[in-house]
Amino acid sequence: MRAVRRFGAEAVALAAATVIFLVPFAFMLLTAVKNEKQATDLDFSWPTEWRIVQNFTEVIEARDFVLLRAYLNSTILTVVSVALIVVFAAMAAFVLQRRAGRIGSVANFLVLSGLIIPPAIVPTIWLLQALGLFKTMPGLILVEVAFGLSYAVLLFRAFIAAIPRELDEAAMIDGCGGMRLFFRVIFPLLRPVTITVILTSAVAIFNDFVNPLYFLPGDDNATVQVTLYNFQSQYNTQWNLLFMDIVLITIPPLLLFVFFNRKIVAGMTAGAIKG
């Protein structure tokens, strides 16, 4: 009897989760392969015609291959920003964890502020313009780095706390200065948390919509999220193409999820559970 009830409860939970969490994805996929006429219905139905390849090529070729350029832009943005975040945050977190003092507490305060304070948009634009970086990729990269540093520092700091100081002392007796100690001894040891930081920041930056919208407007250097947003108004008669675009944009995070599920979850829960 209990086994039956247990099985029933499982079935209900599974069914509910499937409906609530998977149906929207199924809807995306099905609409993406329909023909234009059927997709206009916007209902949840089996495609009468499977136009996987045609829709795919049509989306890619749309507006002079804007999607390919967007992919290139998003890749550059993500790779460069994440690389800078990793190096800068690891360096800062190392000193922050090892060296207490007034500068340390100021830095701690700034890290927490970075997590809480919403960025001031127009003053940032004003500043980027003064530096000649507004509407440029380097400008947007700096913005992503500045906004992404705090979280990465937290993750690195927690990990560095578990590395014994004896190691630093041994390296110093061997004549390592601070820089060499960090880059030759400590940084290689941070590999596990570095992977976590790379994954969480990469997902956040690739999916970021707000910052590209404000700091890198214009079609030439649009990122995939901005392109998708623009497609929304352009394609409101061609829903199949819009959803093909959505599917294409969802693939990179899906791949990361398939390969690194545990690492990503570890990164998102790290620091949250201290108790």
Partner: peptide, 30 residues
Amino acid sequence: RSAYPYALYLPAAVVYLVIFLVPTVMAFYF
């Protein structure tokens, strides 16, 4: 002499101060 030079803060500090903190403070004036 510390094995943990404050110079390691420098790159993060520059980006954070210039791109995040300065606009945040200036916002109160603008």
